[in-house]
Nucleic acid binder design. Structure first.
Length: 599
DNA sequence: ACGCTCGCATCAGGTGGGAAACGG
DNA sequence: CCGTTTCCCACCTGATGCGAGCGT
């Protein structure tokens, strides 16, 4: 869809349209492209995403919310007239009333003001003065259920890519994202209806080029790009219970550079090659008909996860990214070296072990063998062979998506953000992904596991997967969404444990670990290595040589780094020894909840 | 006989690589 | 000329349909 449709209230501008959508919520692209409602007006060039600063308040560490790697500052600046959705309040931010208040926006149903970032397509302000009201804005204190908490299910995988600067292929016919966006949402009103959609906006005002093995800016970004920038989840609109019941996957979202494409616009987001983008999740409360309720102040919530930033390309530039894609994307399995020779049918399954299996993986499989497999790290984030999982799913009724296998990889890696984050730190203007805390948690694998389904899942849910609470699919792939239709949500949705329920032990433990990681100079590798010397059957050198042997070396000479990462990942995977995991789990990884608890 | 489960085959579609084409 | 884009290829996943086998 092009900007021309922008003014049209395609988003259920008519009752008929709304009804139609309601009839077949799962149908994508039916009727007027939903996205049209948020069509780009080409006026958003002044709306950007403020780059995060690396500054990380020490206070954050002290704060229970410190676990949140993101600085909860209202770093995203939304220039006046930038549309109704002031870019997200950083990660997991909740739009303050001021940002989208109907009164301020003066919008009516489907009014043009409801443009999202579409109109702007930019998150990154040309200037750094975010000073926005957002940074100081106080979170709206509305009734319960109005403030959502969002988990980025496959965050570890995203982080892994982010370290090398994620690249996403865009093609004329559209290319799926990998990793794809997958979230778990909490805190919604069970009965209220919501539209959930992803918007992709420019992350910075630059045009990028891969030169000398690195991404460097090369001129200014072209903000005049047209085309759909929003992808509305096909199941929209739907109830809060529905959204919270299952993992919300955007695996079908496609990226294209074909501005003129008229087909499946609702499924395709038009981007420009060599530009950096930042996906954002929007949750908009609507009426049962899918019409936005103008009578409510708090209707829109936006969430931004910096680690999901990516540069759109028509061909991969960084071989590290290519290798990560090949290693993690099931559809690219054919490109994995030694795939045939290294895995038998059975081992093939092990290739992408489920998080559950992972803890024992090193016991079952000769470590040396896996040292060569970067994807082994995926035991925590990668896919569990779907067919395998599928059987399991068919065998048991899916009840609580949170713990259900559908969460796939995501199960073990849920990261959620709530308004608390923002509120917790209003001083930071940084929007950038601060990997420091991530590194720590990631390398240690502590956090990822900490928020595993265990924490979110009621005990009864686990009973469905007695042999493997982590029997989930890949983090990067196979969202259960693909299977959800086959399973019967027989059990009533059970709201997540109250975020207010804290688990001091776990929380403290994690916090300490993070501090440890941070203090170690961000060298997560050494950190965990020391902690888990026995867990690693291979040293860095081995890993490096193996990695080099197996895969192409990146031009940028990041091979070493890459190998380190791979080793680290592998190690991190191994690090998650069952003992620790069990301990953590038993303690209730729900510590995370308390961590992100709303004050 | 009927219904269910399972395995296999088929097809559509997704993947990155590489060569060719395109454009500044 | 060089960087970028497009197209085609082989390989893979996932969904679906069909038939065999089994239990009721």
């Amino acid at each position: 869809m092009l900007g021309g449709e922008g003014e049209s209230s395609a988003f259920s501008s008519t009752k008929e349209a709304a009804d139609e959508r309601r009839k077949s919520p799962a149908v994508e692209g039916d009727g007027p492209t939903p996205g049209s409602r948020y069509t780009e007006h080409g006026v958003g060039s002044d709306r950007y995403y403020i780059p995060p600063t690396l500054s990380k308040q020490s206070s954050e560490t002290a704060n229970p919310c410190s676990f949140i790697p993101y600085t909860p500052s209202g770093t995203v600046y939304n220039p006046s007239g930038a549309g109704r959705y002031p870019s997200s309040l950083h990660l997991g931010s909740v739009l303050p009333p001021a940002g989208f208040s109907p009164s301020t926006a003066g919008r009516s149903h489907f009014s043009p003001t409801y443009q999202l970032g579409q109109s702007t397509g930019c998150l990154y302000p040309p200037y750094a003065g975010s000073g926005s009201a957002l940074s100081n804005m106080t979170l709206p204190t509305t009734g319960p259920g109005t403030r959502a908490q969002v988990y980025l299910c496959n965050r570890p995988l995203w982080v892994k890519f982010h370290r090398h600067q994620t690249e996403m292929i865009i093609t004329k016919q559209g290319r799926r994202m990998f990793p794809f966006l997958s979230f778990n949402i909490a805190g919604l009103n069970l009965t209220a209806h919501y539209n959930v959609f992803v918007e992709v906006v420019l992350a910075d005002p630059n045009h990028w080029r891969f030169q000398g093995g690195k991404w460097v800016t090369c001129g200014k970004a072209d903000n005049s790009s047209q085309g759909n920038k929003v992808y509305i989840h096909p199941e929209s609109p739907n109830t809060g219970a529905h959204w919270m019941r299952q993992e919300i996957s955007f695996s079908k979202l496609k990226l294209t550079n074909n501005k003129g494409t008229s087909h499946s616009t609702s499924q395709m987001i038009v981007l420009q090659s060599l530009h950096k983008y930042q996906p954002r999740l929007h949750i908009v409360e609507v009426t049962e008909d899918g019409v936005e309720d103008i009578n409510s102040d708090i209707k829109t919530q936006s969430f931004t996860f910096p680690e999901t930033q990516f540069i759109a390309v028509t061909a991969y530039q960084n071989t590290d990214i290519t290798q990560l894609k090949i290693d993690h994307n099931p559809f690219a399995k054919g490109f994995r070296d030694n795939y045939d020779s290294m895995y038998t049918a059975q081992e093939n399954d092990r290739l992408t072990p489920s998080p559950t299996e992972s803890p024992r993986a090193h016991q079952i499989v000769p470590g040396a063998r896996y040292t060569m497999q970067p994807f082994f790290q995926d035991q925590f984030v990668n896919n569990l062979p779907q067919n395998r999982f599928y059987n399991s799913e068919r065998a048991v009724p899916q009840t609580n998506s949170l713990l259900s296998p559908q969460s796939e990889d995501g199960v073990s890696q849920r990261w959620f953000v709530t308004s608390v984050q923002q509120g917790g730190n209003s001083t930071s203007t940084s929007n950038k992904l601060d990997l420091t805390p991530y590194e720590g948690e990631y390398s240690s694998s502590l956090l990822p596991y900490g928020i595993k389904s265990f924490s979110m899942q009621p005990s009864h849910a686990l009973s469905y997967y007695p042999d493997s609470p982590f029997t989930t699919m890949s983090a990067g792939w196979g969202s259960r969404a693909a299977y959800q239709k086959k399973v019967t949500p027989s059990l009533p949705w059970s709201p997540r444990p109250s975020p207010t329920t804290g688990f001091p032990d776990s929380s403290e433990k994690v916090k300490l670990q993070i501090e440890e990681e941070v203090n170690s100079g961000g060298g997560s590798t050494s950190s965990w290595t020391e902690r888990q010397p026995s867990a690693l059957s291979l040293d860095k050198a081995d890993c490096y040589s193996m990695a080099c042997k197996r895969r192409r070396l990146s031009v940028n000479g990041s091979s070493t780094e890459d190998s380190d990462i791979k080793c680290e990942d592998l190690a991190s995977a191994v690090t998650n020894d069952s003992a620790y995991k069990e301990a953590s789990l038993s303690k209730g990884m729900a510590a995370y909840y308390s961590f992100y608890t709303n004050p």
